[in-house]
Computed example of a mutant assay.
Amino acid sequence: MSRVCDLTGKSAMKGHNVSNSNVKTKRKFYPNLQLKKFYIPEEDRWITLKVSTSALKTINKNGISSCIQKFLKKGYI
Rank of each mutant, 00 (worst) to 15 (best):
V4Y: 06
V4Q: 05
C5K: 00
D6K: 00
T8G: 02
T8D: 03
T8W: 09
G9R: 03
G9Q: 00
G9K: 06
K10I: 02
K10Q: 07
K10P: 02
S11A: 09
S11V: 00
A12P: 07
M13V: 13
M13A: 15
M13W: 08
M13C: 14
K14C: 10
G15Q: 03
G15P: 06
G15T: 05
H16Q: 10
H16G: 03
N17E: 09
V18G: 00
S19R: 08
S19T: 01
N20A: 07
N20Q: 12
V23Y: 14
V23Q: 06
K24M: 04
T25M: 03
T25C: 01
T25Y: 05
K26N: 06
K26D: 08
R27D: 06
R27K: 03
R27N: 05
K28T: 02
K28G: 02
K28P: 03
F29C: 02
F29Y: 03
F29V: 02
Y30F: 11
Y30A: 07
P31E: 03
P31A: 00
N32Y: 11
L33I: 00
L33T: 00
Q34H: 13
Q34T: 12
Q34L: 08
Q34C: 11
Q34Y: 09
L35H: 13
K36N: 08
K36R: 11
F38I: 13
Y39F: 07
Y39P: 08
Y39Q: 15
I40R: 14
I40Y: 15
I40D: 07
I40Q: 12
P41G: 06
E43A: 14
E43G: 12
E43I: 15
E43Q: 14
D44V: 06
D44N: 14
D44W: 05
R45Q: 15
R45N: 14
I47W: 10
I47V: 11
I47C: 13
T48K: 12
T48F: 07
K50G: 10
V51M: 05
V51G: 04
S52Y: 08
S52V: 01
S52F: 05
L56T: 01
L56M: 04
L56F: 02
K57C: 06
K57M: 07
K57H: 12
K57I: 04
K57Q: 10
T58D: 14
T58G: 14
T58S: 14
I59R: 04
I59W: 01
N60Q: 08
N60E: 06
N62E: 13
N62D: 15
N62M: 11
I64N: 01
S65Q: 07
S66G: 12
S66V: 07
C67A: 12
C67K: 00
C67M: 11
I68A: 00
I68S: 00
I68H: 01
Q69A: 13
K70P: 04
K70G: 07
F71V: 09
F71G: 00
L72N: 09
L72M: 10
K73H: 11
K74V: 10
K74E: 06
G75M: 05
G75S: 04
G75H: 08
Y76N: 12
I77W: 02
I77P: 02
I77R: 04
